[in-house]
Amino acid sequence: TEYKLVVVGAGGVGKSALTIQLIQNHFVDEYDPTIEDSYRKQVVIDGETCLLDILDTAGQEEYSAMRDQYMRTGEGFLCVFAINNTKSFEDIHQYREQIKRVKDSDDVPMVLVGNKCDLAARTVESRQAQDLARSYGIPYIETSAKTRQGVEDAFYTLVREIRQH
């Protein structure tokens, strides 16, 4: 089974770092803004072998026109913010609204991801993020692309959301 996953969120929150940590098991430290990259990885989730087709997208506003296209083809979405960047957390709402509009559905598989949880300088409390996820009816997972904490959990949870859909 193949799953088309799309990673969305503001610029600099760590979308590529999360994806590369999942696929290649290493942490990319330097920031190089993405336009669009796709990665494929075969994994076993709950005993089922599946192929993850992951689209890593641009957070930069100037590429926002490309969003409709990949939102149409994606089956599930990782909505990523950084726990030390309140603005990126506030941006999640717009991504969710755009996904709902493009998919013409209120019920699209999504996982809210709070990345950079290895950093002490948190400005978005776990509780705020949990409340937001609960209001959307989606899971919330904290990750660190640096330490790998929660990385597999985030992507695998999204696959489970798609399966249950």
Results as ranks from 00 to 15, higher is better:
T1Y: 00
T1H: 02
T1F: 05
T1L: 09
Y3K: 13
K4H: 07
L5D: 07
V6F: 13
V7D: 00
V8Y: 14
G9A: 05
G9N: 01
A10G: 07
G12E: 15
G12A: 14
V13A: 07
V13N: 11
G14N: 01
G14Q: 00
K15Q: 01
S16A: 00
A17N: 00
A17P: 00
T19K: 03
Q21V: 08
L22A: 14
L22Q: 14
L22S: 15
L22D: 08
I23M: 06
I23L: 13
Q24R: 03
Q24Y: 08
N25P: 14
H26W: 06
H26C: 10
F27L: 09
F27V: 08
V28P: 06
D29K: 02
D29G: 09
D29R: 09
Y31W: 02
Y31Q: 11
Y31E: 12
Y31L: 14
D32M: 08
D32K: 02
P33K: 12
T34H: 00
I35K: 01
I35M: 04
I35G: 01
I35Q: 02
E36V: 06
D37I: 00
D37P: 01
S38E: 06
S38A: 01
Y39A: 04
Y39N: 01
Y39R: 00
R40G: 04
K41E: 03
Q42I: 05
V43K: 05
V43H: 13
V44G: 05
D46C: 04
G47Y: 01
G47R: 06
E48P: 06
T49Y: 01
T49A: 06
L51P: 07
L51G: 04
L52S: 05
I54K: 00
D56H: 04
T57P: 04
T57W: 10
T57R: 09
T57D: 06
A58E: 14
A58M: 14
G59Q: 07
G59H: 12
Q60Y: 15
Q60I: 15
E61Q: 08
E62F: 15
Y63G: 15
Y63S: 15
S64Q: 11
A65F: 01
A65L: 06
M66G: 15
M66A: 14
M66V: 10
M66L: 06
R67T: 14
R67Y: 14
D68S: 09
D68K: 07
D68C: 10
Q69N: 03
Q69V: 03
R72S: 06
R72C: 10
R72P: 08
T73R: 06
T73K: 04
T73P: 11
G74K: 03
E75S: 04
E75Y: 05
G76A: 11
G76S: 02
F77W: 03
F77L: 02
L78G: 01
L78N: 02
F81K: 02
F81C: 00
F81Q: 00
F81Y: 02
F81D: 02
I83M: 06
N85K: 05
N85D: 10
T86V: 02
T86S: 07
K87H: 02
S88H: 05
E90L: 05
E90Y: 04
D91T: 07
I92Q: 01
Q94P: 11
Q94V: 11
Q94K: 14
Y95T: 09
Y95P: 00
R96W: 11
Q98S: 09
I99R: 03
K100Y: 02
K100I: 01
K100N: 09
K100W: 00
R101N: 03
R101K: 01
R101F: 04
R101D: 05
V102A: 07
V102W: 07
K103I: 05
D104N: 05
D104M: 13
D104S: 08
S105L: 06
S105I: 08
D107N: 04
D107L: 02
D107S: 08
V108Y: 05
V108Q: 02
P109K: 04
P109G: 02
M110D: 02
M110E: 05
M110T: 02
M110C: 04
V111A: 11
L112Q: 13
V113Q: 05
N115D: 09
N115I: 10
K116Y: 15
K116A: 15
K116M: 15
C117V: 09
D118T: 13
L119A: 14
A121L: 06
R122Y: 15
R122W: 09
R122C: 10
R122V: 12
T123V: 09
T123K: 06
T123D: 15
V124S: 11
S126A: 12
S126L: 11
R127I: 14
R127G: 08
R127P: 11
Q128P: 11
Q128N: 12
Q128F: 14
Q128Y: 13
A129E: 12
A129N: 13
A129V: 09
A129K: 15
Q130R: 08
D131R: 11
D131H: 12
L132R: 10
L132H: 09
L132K: 05
L132G: 09
A133C: 10
A133D: 05
R134Q: 09
R134Y: 12
R134I: 04
S135P: 12
Y136R: 08
Y136V: 09
Y136H: 05
G137E: 13
P139W: 06
Y140S: 09
Y140N: 09
I141Q: 06
E142Y: 05
S144H: 15
S144E: 15
A145T: 15
A145N: 15
K146C: 14
K146Q: 14
R148S: 11
Q149T: 12
G150F: 14
V151G: 15
D153P: 08
D153F: 13
D153I: 12
D153A: 11
D153N: 05
A154V: 10
A154T: 12
F155V: 15
Y156G: 10
L158K: 05
L158R: 03
L158V: 13
E161T: 09
E161P: 05
E161I: 07
E161C: 13
I162N: 05
R163D: 09
R163E: 11
Q164T: 12
Q164N: 11
Q164Y: 14
H165N: 10
H165R: 13
